Computed example of a mutant assay.
Amino acid sequence: MAAEGESTGFNIHPMDQFVVKPLFGGDTIEWYTITNVTMWMGIAVLAIIALMVLGTSRRAIIPSRTQSIAELIYGFIYKMVEDVAGHDGVKYFPYVLTLFLFILFSNLLGLLPKSFTTTSHVAVTVTLALMVFLGVTLLGLYKQGIGFLGMFWVTSAPLAIRPILAVIEVISYFVRPVSHSIRLAGNLMAGHAVIKVIAGFASMAVVSPVVVGAVTAIYGLELLVAVVQAYVFTILTCVYLRDAVGGAHH
């Protein structure tokens, strides 16, 4: 009876959807192993190419829906880079646009049934954040030289507390990639886990109507989160880029 109760028990495993699995069998994962993460990152890249390259290959004065979406995203990110990073930051617009599109499509594709949300893994988001962190740091040192370190010295503060503020600024600077990456991965993982838990109650006929409404509402919220988190990651990248190309303003 106990075994039967366990077999018919209500079990929810919300974290199973985040398990990395090899596509071609086996249990061992090496750095060269093609996994579900690899596949869905590839699909995201193909989706970006389909939108930005194939969708705009036949440009017209009266744009198609695909061309309109591509132009809207292009103009939105360009204005963001120009407004936040300044004129000197516009030359790095292609990288920022690519970063935004990759995160956006990875987030949105993760909402499809049976898909895998690559940006829910810290390994992916940390890589993206470190690329931004190292790129901005090297760029700042290249363009400003030793003057780049001046961003850690708050000249507007009283001289007595400047060394303390400098330590705080250095710590906060090196924490950037941590907060930059965990914010993205944490929001997506938490939302998907909640959807899985609530959807698990769909097997209980008594509360099915409530569950359907709850899952629909959570799914709509996750759709918003997918777009907002891509925007937040990108605009923070622009802020960090401004420090490198325009100098810090204290």
Rank of each mutant, 00 (worst) to 15 (best):
V197N: 04
D16K: 11
A70C: 02
Y92P: 02
L23A: 05
R58T: 07
F10S: 13
L51V: 07
V206I: 13
V232I: 15
I164E: 11
S64E: 10
C238Y: 00
L97K: 03
V227G: 08
I69C: 03
I77N: 01
M204R: 14
I34N: 11
A60I: 06
K196E: 12
L109M: 15
I195F: 09
A214W: 00
Q67A: 11
A129P: 01
M41K: 05
I164L: 15
F116L: 04
G220C: 14
Q67L: 09
P158S: 13
L108Q: 04
G89Q: 00
I73F: 08
I12M: 06
A230P: 05
I61K: 15
V175G: 04
L241V: 05
M52H: 09
S64V: 03
L141F: 15
L241A: 06
I43P: 01
N36I: 14
I235C: 00
L108P: 03
T33K: 05
V20Q: 04
G145C: 10
K21I: 14
G9Q: 09
A202Q: 10
T8M: 15
V84H: 03
G89P: 03
S172I: 10
K114R: 15
V194H: 01
T216H: 09
T234L: 10
R176W: 14
V178E: 03
L224M: 13
E169G: 03
G186K: 07
R176S: 12
G213W: 07
L111M: 11
G140W: 01
N107D: 01
L223A: 11
T35S: 06
L241P: 02
S156E: 01
V206D: 12
Y142K: 10
S181D: 11
Y240G: 08
Y173V: 08
N107K: 02
T66V: 00
L72G: 03
L138V: 13
A50K: 07
V232N: 03
K91E: 10
I103R: 01
I198M: 00
G89C: 02
D16C: 05
P94K: 14
V227K: 08
H87V: 11
G42K: 03
G247N: 09
A2M: 15
G9C: 05
S181T: 09
L139N: 05
N36T: 14
E30P: 02
T137N: 13
V206H: 13
G55Y: 02
Y231C: 07
P163I: 05
I168D: 07
I195T: 12
M41G: 05
R183F: 12
L54T: 15
L159N: 08
N36Y: 11
G75C: 12
H180W: 11
F233G: 02
I171N: 10
W40P: 00
M41R: 05
Y231Q: 07
T117H: 02
I43Q: 01
L72R: 08
L112K: 08
T234F: 12
A166L: 13
V207S: 14
L134V: 14
